[in-house]
């Protein structure tokens, strides 16, 4: 079990875990955003997408359990690494100048934990215990109406905006760090990966926040009548 020990006991191994689970979660965030953006194609398309996901429960549960495992490992490795990092400098500098670190990199643990708290809230809000469980005229769960109802509450919508802001700050550093941790960010690839990280963080920010923003500005109000 040397490989197991090497991965779970070394800081490098824990960074591989961070990177690979982060990559899986990043992939989910992209798929989740693309799926949800179908809200702008109308009530019928979004509800059909929801029914399509529900039509394959085995795959859905495999994905859910896989994501849960990724979240668990990601947080475990993060907490371990932060504790090890802090223990490596028990006596702090009285005057320290920050060098080569960004706001995102210094606050990864906090943006991550707040986003985790948001994900728990989000799951209860729309999956585990949604406020609205009605059906549309084709007998499908009316997700469109559920989302419009949910985001009509400005407090909820603003929480979604703030959480997505933190998520994208987290991703802007996380995506570039995963390439770094896996040893791929070398030479001319470094600026490419850094560019990918910033660009995808912005795309996800705009894509995800567009939904609560659109509802706040009156999108989909007709279904509430």
């Amino acid at each position: 079990m040397n490989i197991f020990k090497a991965i779970f006991h070394s800081s490098l191994g824990k960074k591989y875990i961070m990177g690979l689970t982060g990559l899986a979660l990043f992939g989910f965030v992209i798929g989740h955003m693309v799926g949800n953006l179908q809200i702008f194609l109308g009530q019928d398309k979004l509800n059909a997408y929801g029914a399509f996901l529900k039509s394959m429960p085995k795959l859905l549960w495999v994905a859910r359990i896989g994501l849960l495992a990724c979240v668990g490992l990601h947080i475990w490795a993060a907490v371990k690494l932060v504790r090890e990092n802090r223990a490596a400098r028990p006596d702090r500098y009285v005057q320290a100048k920050r060098m080569g670190t960004s706001f995102a990199s210094r606050t990864m643990i906090w943006s991550g934990l707040i986003v985790f708290a948001f994900i728990v809230y989000h799951l209860f809000d729309f999956t585990i215990a949604p406020d609205y469980t009605g059906h549309d005229d084709k007998g499908r769960h009316d997700i469109f109406k559920m989302v419009v109802l949910g985001f009509s509450n400005p407090f909820s919508a603003i929480f979604y905006l703030i959480a997505n802001c933190l998520l994208c700050i987290h991703l802007s550093h996380g995506v570039k760090s995963l390439f770094q941790s896996l040893g791929l960010s070398t030479g001319q690839f470094r600026s490419l990966f850094n560019g990918i990280a910033s660009a995808t963080a912005w795309i996800i920010f705009i894509g995800n926040t567009s939904i609560p923003l659109a509802v706040l500005l009156g999108f989909g109000k007709e279904v509430l009548k």
């Binding site: 223990a87 490596a88 400098r89 028990p90 006596d91 702090r92 500098y93 009285v94 005057q95």
Partner: peptide, 10 residues
Amino acid sequence: ITIEPWRARP
């Protein structure tokens, strides 16, 4: 001017 030693556990 503030002057400190290298600060690290190792």
